[in-house]
Design a protein around this nucleic acid. Structure first.
Lengths: 239, 239
DNA sequence: CCATCGCTTCGGCCAGGGCCGAATTGTTCG
DNA sequence: CGAACAATTCGGCCCTGGCCGAAGCGATGG
């Protein structure tokens, strides 16, 4: 026990430094970034960043791959991403009650609208998709878990999402992930990751450089309206 | 985002101190403990503990209730417990590869056998129960979620677990929770919590003082064997 | 009312760790 | 090969934050 507790403390202490938090948050989109890129997002010098990255790698929160003279760092396992989501849910919950400190920045607005959450879509768009799919009976959510229904399987298949290894007869689960900005679940898990991938290849959303924010393209606006009845231009949250 | 990231760092830094980790871990069984009790488990003086508890309460990780001259602290929300489980899963995963440092202590052995995990049962017993219930088709697990089947609903009902507000026709989810000692999922969520409660009232398991370890009673040994075909006396993990 | 106990606040000590400047290693490219 | 660049290691500065002793505050109980 002592040994586990001390490892917990170790891991949490690693996450608990602002520079390292920025790095980990930047890696939450699942991609790998170079040491210098991470130094920039963390707002520290390359030497300092190197120290942080070394610690995170030793603790196996990050994995490193050399490529030429670059070293790419990424989250070591999906488990790390899920852990960070868990901390975000708590951090977001407690900030929800606090008085809005200042007007949100433009970036913050964009993040609230749509962003990646490790490997799936979060923000207003993510929650709106989840709402629509649950409303149509394609997805069922309860606080403890979710599933893709048979109709959901067909719907996604028609949308070009191939759940190759999943027979429609078998239960297909899709993990709900609590959205820190909307305080409601969006679609994570395998289904969420594949849907996100599909939207990227369709060009409905596009990754913004250097943040997890997603840009909704013109085609995306039309598509979300036509296929999902989602109009994200309005400032109000989609009911 | 700066604001969310800094809150994440704040929360993680709070968890990242060994004394506070010990306190939080001690509260993982869902009960409330007094400030002095928490000082003891943390291994620090009452003054120091008071400082820690104050910080955890301000950050809304803990909730406090006065009762006479005592102050009882407990995890503020189930979300906090789930977050801690998430960190445990990562902390346990990285320690799994490491060479067993020393012979595990007696307490550690007991914890590995059976313990509470916030509000449900973990350890060999928890995983064995999950195995049995999945094997019988009462519960279905996939990495992203789980559900109680109709037969599982009936089985639990026959066992005295009343899922009052759940009609058997509706999907009943039961969250899988990755077990840090067994590295396999056990049954969490509503079903897990109710099952744990039932086993406590039946007297099959009993809380041990001052740890999360559960003692399996004589009645429990007989019961687990008869109803679940689980024999936990053998040292080997139940296959 | 005073002794006791639970808990907190205050003040000062001290160590761990984040930070950068300078120098080193290793890779790419002209 | 030498310049440019990515990344790391080393050394020293400095500050945050954990820790305890002493003292204060509120509740209980004789």
């Amino acid at each position: 026990m002592a040994s586990l507790n001390s490892r917990i403390a170790e891991v949490a202490a690693l996450i608990g430094d602002p520079a390292r938090t920025n790095m980990l948050a930047a890696l939450m989109d699942g991609r790998a970034l170079t040491a210098t890129e991470l130094a920039t997002v963390a707002g520290v010098s390359p030497q300092t960043a190197s120290g942080h990255l070394g610690k995170l790698a030793v603790a196996e929160l990050l994995a490193m791959e050399r490529q030429g003279r670059h070293r790419y760092y990424r989250l070591a396992t999906p488990l790390v991403g899920q852990m960070l989501e868990g901390i975000m849910a708590v951090a977001g919950a407690q900030s929800a009650g606090a008085p809005r400190p200042l007007r949100p920045t433009r970036i913050e607005d964009e993040m609230r609208l749509a962003r990646t959450c490790y490997d799936h879509i979060a923000g207003r768009l993510g929650v709106a998709l989840a709402d629509r799919l649950t409303g149509e009976g394609h997805v069922a959510f309860l606080p403890d878990g979710g599933e893709l229904t048979a109709s959901g399987f067909d719907f996604l298949a028609g949308f070009g999402v191939t759940l190759a290894d999943c027979r429609p007869t078998r239960r297909i689960f899709c993990r709900p992930c609590l959205d820190w900005s909307e305080r409601r679940p969006h679609i994570a898990g395998r289904a969420g990751a594949l849907l996100c991938e599909r939207l990227l290849t369709l060009g409905w959303v596009r990754r913004r450089a250097s943040t997890r924010a997603l840009e909704i393209t013109r085609a995306g606006r039309a598509g979300f309206l036509a296929r999902f009845c989602i109009d994200l231009r309005s400032a109000a949250p989609i009911q």
